[in-house]
Design a protein around this nucleic acid. Structure first.
Lengths: 335, 335
DNA sequence: TGAGTCTATTGTAATCGATTTCAAGTCATG
DNA sequence: CATGACTTGAAATCGATTACAATAGACTCA
């Protein structure tokens, strides 16, 4: 590897001049510029970012932590993040922190040690090791949350109106004629699950069906969707429709319904949440809430870069539009 | 942020001593060690990795590029990679390079510029900008491929015996009594697709059914599985079984079969490849080849670290065991 | 025309925050 | 008192950026 010194020597100029050529082309005469460019080409020189970062205290790097990379929902968000970050000249350090809870702090450490300019976390809790940072710098801490809006989480975020979306799905089920509905939530420590649950109960109240509501706590996983559905099916007065707080759990629900010898939507309607890619292709295809995952990804980056540049100084919580997608998995209950 | 100088000053020692405390505890008297530790605690000091890396020319960072992060198969491999890397004290820089072909070179640049110690790529082609590096350093270039073994790819790799696995799936279908089989491959520029295709034709030859084989070129995506299956269903003498080179394509196939008013496996058997998490839950559940994805991830890291440490100097190609998983989607053809 | 001023170009050297080489100092031991 | 084993510090170093200074040439104006 050649260094800036080699280039300077070969071109017969100082390192300062080479640096100028590299960064701005201002204040460099055409003749010198040619010489330097020639030397760079000849040596195949590439600047050492390490050194550059050390000097400038900027890294052009963003950290993204995700609870479960195998979840298609997050994958789509990450796509949006990578796209926006790359376009802005940033590279993305992606950390899967699902199974090893401690590792999120490992990634947070990168931020604290200034090895990254900012961090996006897609889970529902701020890594504890960043509490100090957030407490001290407030909204100007370069940290943004994707999906999980919560007042107690004092950072900026990008998300949909989860309560409204959940309410709309419930309204849809009631409109189809369902009375008894089972709901499989996500982890209730997560604000989005609590928001959705609130939408669920609001709709049930409005329709006077609060007593016909069965709420089970899930964890967004396929397995959990299957297990909880089996529980619902075993009830004496079983529901005629199930609303899962993730498409993955809905897939599990479909599986359990089939395993019980029943059929969806004839015997049981199922609605999901997220609209991952596969939801269109499942058997039956899934009625669900489309989250603008790509857009969520892009916006979080936009917001984060705003904070980093200093343009954004107040906490900002962006609510994006969602969309209900009606497919085969919901229908009127059998008479 | 405090620096090593602040610590040194507060502890009343030199930076060299602080550095010694930080790295090894050798040659430091207990009294001084105490003082330094105290100062570190008091300041909440954390070493700046940038500076450390610049000095040591090591980064403790690995790059992983993946063709499509939304593909569950890759997600599982990445899990294994992250786990092994973290355990060895490395952090993982993950790059999704699917839709923006150029960006793989962006990530490769990180390696060339020594911003990472090594690179794992899960696609089938070496980023062009690394050709020089591989040509020059050969097997000691810190680059490992996951999944895609090819002789022309002159780097170490970890993969299964794709030809054998494909052959076994075909043998299974023939054993069930199928004669006409449709095969939907992946991108044929990819060695694994070619290997699998070779296994397919070998089995067909052996069973004297080469003329009853219909081979369509796919791209591993759900959509493609659906489209190609629709084509197969439209044939005059349509196959009774379809072998897809990925589970995703198999999901697409199931969808197309259902859309055509047919049923799997009664009217059409379907086999996949990978055994992603969802394959157990699809309707019907999928007969497929289980790849040891987690293990592939772990082994690639192991291999890469071996190269980085200098322990591995020859090109190594590791073949891991696969396993056939028989589920509902394959059955004997109707009489 | 010549002095003074301004501007564009370039170089010198400090700097970012760590590690590491080398030399120096301390102390116990035979 | 010489020797050697431990501790410790001073200063060079990694490879860039950048503040500041120096120089040269162009321009203004009496």
């Amino acid at each position: 590897m050649s260094t800036i010194n080699d280039v300077a020597k070969l071109a017969g100029v100082s390192t300062a001049t080479v640096s100028r050529v590299l960064n701005d082309y201002a204040h460099v005469s055409p003749a010198v510029l040619d010489k330097v460019m020639g030397a760079i080409d000849q040596l195949g020189y590439e600047p050492n970012q390490m050194a550059k970062n050390l000097r400038t205290l900027k890294t052009s790097r963003l950290i993204v932590t995700v609870p479960n990379i195998a979840n298609a929902f997050f994958a789509h968000i990450i796509r949006g993040v990578e796209e926006a970050a790359l376009a802005a000249g940033y590279t993305v350090l992606l950390g899967d922190v699902g199974f090893h809870g401690t590792s999120e702090d490992a990634y947070a450490g990168l931020l604290r040690r200034k090895e990254a300019d900012g961090m996006i976390f897609l889970g529902h809790t701020l890594p504890v090791s960043l509490n100090d940072l957030v407490a001290k710098k407030g909204a100007s801490a370069p940290i943004v949350n994707g999906c999980e809006f919560s007042d107690s989480l004092s950072v900026s975020s990008v998300h949909i109106d989860n309560a409204l979306a959940a309410r709309q799905i419930m309204d849809h089920l009631y409109a189809l004629g369902h009375h008894r509905i089972g709901v499989i939530t996500g982890d209730l420590r997560s604000p989005i699950s609590r928001d959705r649950l609130q939408g669920v109960t609001a709709s049930a109240d409005q329709h006077g069906r609060s007593n016909d509501l069965t709420i089970l706590t899930g964890d967004y996983s396929i397995e959990c969707g299957a297990t909880m559905t089996a529980q619902l099916l075993a009830q004496s007065r079983r529901p005629t429709a199930i609303f899962c707080f993730s498409d993955d759990m809905a897939f599990g629900a479909l599986h359990a319904i089939r395993a019980a010898g029943l059929s969806c939507p004839a015997d049981m309607s199922v609605a999901g949440f997220d609209d991952v890619h596969l939801s269109r292709f499942s058997a039956p295809s899934l009625t669900t809430v489309r989250q603008p995952m790509h857009e969520i990804g892009r916006k979080t980056v936009e917001l984060l870069l705003g904070i980093i540049d200093g343009g954004v100084t107040e906490r900002v919580n962006i609510t994006l539009d969602h969309e209900l997608v009606f497919r085969e998995s919901t229908a009127a209950p059998k008479a």
